[in-house]
Amino acid sequence: MTNDPKVSIRGLYKIFGNDPQNALQHVYNGMGKTELLETHGHVLGLQDINVDMQPNEVTVIMGLSGSGKSTLIRHLNRLIEPTAGEVIVDGENVLDYDEAALRQLRQQKMSMVFQKFALLPHRTVLQNAGMSRIVRGEDEETANLAGQKWLDRVGLGGFEGQYPHQLSGGMQQRVGIARALASDSDIMLMDEAFSALDPLIRTDMQDLLLELQQDLHKTIVFITHDLDEALKLADHLVILKDGYVVQQGEPQDILLNPNDPYIEDFVSDINRARVLRVRSVMKPLNGADSFAGVVDANDNLEKLIELSGGDTTYAYKVQQDGQDVGILDMKDLVRALVPAHASESTVTR
């Protein structure tokens, strides 16, 4: 990591209850979530969260319901106040902000997309898309211009005059995304943005987001409970469980080296051939020069299986940007398709 993280969460705790500061002391002294609830009646929402979010990357925070992921994302723009810790955005601690500075942050630097869309039902699609500009105090013309531009970009040109209830769920969420993009903020928070959509539309929206991200290079924080979605979108994956970070890192790496039975459970149902990429299972160049062919480091394994016709005797040369970077043995590929257990993961590696 050469450049500074865009958003950085340091030692973040959130305790729900009447006297969180007192309960925090117990947590510092090593009390667990269950015990805290039983003896003090406080719920430990988040526990010592430390995450760095790099600029221009998609950071996916994944966890099941109750893992605290929605609570965590709301700390970034302080919709929820933490009990302890720091949230540093562009080098400034958001928790030191007063109300005006906080509004400034929300208006200029961070936009948000919601699971239930949360559009203004009494405003047209265009007015909704341009909302962030109006909130900032820009005039209606500028707002409409920005709203129009981003509605076109998310494929909703022609629906400007409609009201949100006249659109389908997928289209409403496109408006939600256009609204977030229209604010021109560097950081986009997406709280289970696609969870309420049906699977086909969800795939469309994921593709749309990836396509937008290729052009826009925003810092995206994406919350999901769906591992497939997480693996598809993530540059950096954070897995939350019961309010603490179980594992974080490059998604491929987590998939190949789960460090916790919880994550093993998670990854066991994944179509590994589609998610894993050549670069994750290749070996370094070893001087051998008989190859069945040349493949790209970012191809997924499914493509390789198709290419080889399922023959495990083949080996391929791996290239990235025209450079030879490694060798892929089909035997390694097949082995990688079977989930490794946390205890043995170092051995197979």
Binding site: N77, F114, K116, F117, A118, L119, M131, V135
Partner: peptide, 18 residues
């Protein structure tokens, strides 16, 4: 009033009056 909409309004930095 739908709490999600209020939250969205907060998230985009609306003032109390807005």
């Amino acid at each position: 009033v739908d709490r999600d909409v209020i939250e969205a309004a907060d998230a985009f930095g609306m003032s109390t009056r807005q």
